[in-house]
């Protein structure tokens, strides 16, 4: 069908790598949050170590895209796709970093029992992961409807974040001896909210890829 079959295969390969990167980052986030719930410091340490793999994969994706741009002079959809792959990879790498950050906070909290109810945290994490998985699916299918739905979920995460921070401040006032733990928890809350934002970013990239224009989905 295509005159540039080899080029198409190269783009597909790089896109497959991006999907692999997404899977790794999402899994890291999931495990990292579970480690927090279990207060399992060994798993937390593992996550910090494994982040190197995610970083290397992102670098590899960058290098491959740069080589493709240099050698193939892509235009139009090809060019947009390669640019979007680079940007999505960077977003997903950040999600991996948040997993690391959560793991670090977990280590800092240590084995001290958590005094704050984790319900809001759980649903935030669940939503964020749902969004990230949804956006990967939307990206592979180039499905802008799904991407829009994912981006819309961000409002929910944002609201939850606001409410949870409010609760944390109050808890801090009630337990002056636990300020340290509360501040670690509020960082974690922030990281979860940011992870969801990156899903929205990727949704915007997908819109650019498909429509060739810039859309602001996170209003």
């Amino acid at each position: 069908m295509s005159v540039r079959e080899r080029f198409d295969l190269d783009i597909q390969a790089v896109q497959d790598q991006l999907v692999a990167l997404c899977t790794m980052s999402i899994a890291a986030l999931e495990r990292s949050f579970q480690a927090l719930l279990d207060q399992d410091l060994d798993v937390a340490l593992e996550i910090i170590e494994d982040d190197n793999d995610i970083n290397h994969l992102e670098e590899e994706i960058n290098d491959r895209v740069i080589l493709l741009i240099a050698k193939q002079q892509p235009v139009a959809t090809d060019l947009r796709r390669l640019m979007v792959i680079i940007k999505a990879a960077s977003d997903m790498e950040r999600v991996g970093d948040y997993a690391v950050n959560i793991a670090k906070e977990t280590i800092r909290i240590g084995r001290e029992p958590i005094i704050f109810p984790m319900t809001n945290f759980k649903s935030m994490c669940q939503k964020a992961i749902e969004m990230l998985q949804g956006i990967v699916k939307a990206f592979v299918e180039e499905n802008t409807i799904l991407a829009k739905e994912v981006a819309d979920l961000d409002d929910y995460v944002d609201d939850l974040y606001g409410a949870t921070v409010e609760l944390l401040i109050r808890a801090g006032a009630e337990h002056p001896d636990k300020t340290k733990q509360i501040s670690h928890l509020s960082f974690i809350c922030r990281y979860l909210e940011r992870s969801a934002d990156h899903a929205t970013n990727i949704a915007e990239h997908l819109f650019y890829l498909v429509k060739g224009r810039h859309y602001e989905l996170n209003t």
Binding site: E142, N143, T144, I145, A147, K148, F207, V210, K211, R213, H214, Y215, E216, L217, T219
Partner: peptide
């Protein structure tokens, strides 16, 4: 690509 209903907050 499927068409998505997007609010006209487009730049």
């Amino acid at each position: 690509a499927k068409e998505a209903p997007v609010k006209e907050t487009i730049v």
